[in-house]
Amino acid sequence: MIHFVLLVSRQGKVRLAKWYSPYTLNERSKVIRELSGIILNRGPKLCNFVEWRGFRAVYRRYAGLYFCMCVDEKDNELEVLDIIHHYVEILDRYFGSVCELDLIFNFHKAYYILDEILIAGELQESSKRSVIRLVCTHDSLVETAKEQASSLSSVIAQVTK
């Protein structure tokens, strides 16, 4: 089971944090501080697995971001690396070569995509096409709702004149 997912920039700023196990706010900030410190200080040629507090942190660096997932010690690290890569590939397809700014300004999309892939810390959807199709369908529904809301507000404005 995945306990949490963190996306951390090279400067140590958290760009995304999704928690699947209960942690208080103080514990979360301590976890982020500890784990990001460990991961950011590791050399690029070292292994992408870190033993930490009886768990195993699996991370991978893509451009300026570290994608990190914390799992139980008995879980398969290579599967977790594959889930990280799967998430990055979907982000790349959706944003067209995703960068840190895409995640900063469209964080809600990054969370939505992650929610389509993982549920309660377990892999839900392994098909990239299905996830992209669902996200695009969601986007079109949001656009339709915005158009209807703007047309409705213009009708209300005309009536109240």
Rank of each mutant, 00 (worst) to 15 (best):
L134Q: 10
D115A: 10
I132D: 06
R133Q: 14
L118H: 04
L65C: 09
I113N: 02
L114A: 11
Y59F: 15
S126N: 13
S97G: 06
L118Q: 05
G96F: 03
M69C: 15
I119E: 03
A57I: 09
Y112C: 10
F67Q: 06
E116F: 01
H108C: 12
V80N: 05
C99L: 12
A57M: 05
Y94S: 06
H86S: 09
C99F: 13
R129C: 07
F107Y: 13
A110E: 02
Y111L: 15
C70V: 15
D75N: 13
E79C: 11
D115W: 06
N76W: 09
C136R: 15
L81W: 10
C70R: 01
F67W: 13
Q124D: 08
V88T: 07
D92F: 02
H85G: 01
F95D: 01
Y59R: 10
V131Y: 01
L65I: 15
N76M: 04
L123D: 02
I83V: 14
F55N: 14
A63Q: 10
L118G: 01
Y62M: 11
Y94Q: 06
K74N: 11
H86D: 10
V135M: 14
L91G: 01
E125G: 01
L114M: 14
I117E: 05
A57G: 10
R56E: 05
Y87I: 10
D102F: 08
D72G: 13
V71W: 01
L78D: 10
E89H: 09
I119V: 14
Y66A: 08
I113W: 00
V98G: 05
L103V: 07
Y87T: 12
Y112A: 12
G121M: 08
F105Y: 15
V58W: 02
Y94L: 09
N106Q: 12
C68Q: 00
D75Q: 14
C70E: 04
I117K: 00
D115Y: 04
Y66Q: 05
V135I: 15
L123W: 03
D82F: 08
F67P: 00
R93E: 14
L101D: 02
S130V: 14
I117H: 03
G121R: 04
V98R: 11
D92T: 00
L101G: 02
Q124I: 00
Q124L: 15
K74H: 11
V131T: 02
E122G: 02
M69E: 06
I90K: 01
D75L: 12
K109L: 12
F95G: 03
C68A: 14
I90W: 00
E125Y: 01
Y87L: 15
D92N: 13
I119P: 00
E73S: 12
R93P: 00
G121K: 08
C68R: 00
S97N: 13
I83N: 03
E116Q: 15
V98N: 05
R129M: 04
E100Q: 08
H108E: 13
V58H: 10
L114E: 04
E116K: 10
S130W: 06
R61F: 11
Y66T: 04
C136M: 14
R60F: 09
L65K: 09
V80K: 01
R133H: 12
V80Y: 01
V80L: 11
K74V: 00
R61A: 05
A120I: 00
F95W: 11
G96M: 10
L81G: 08
L101S: 08
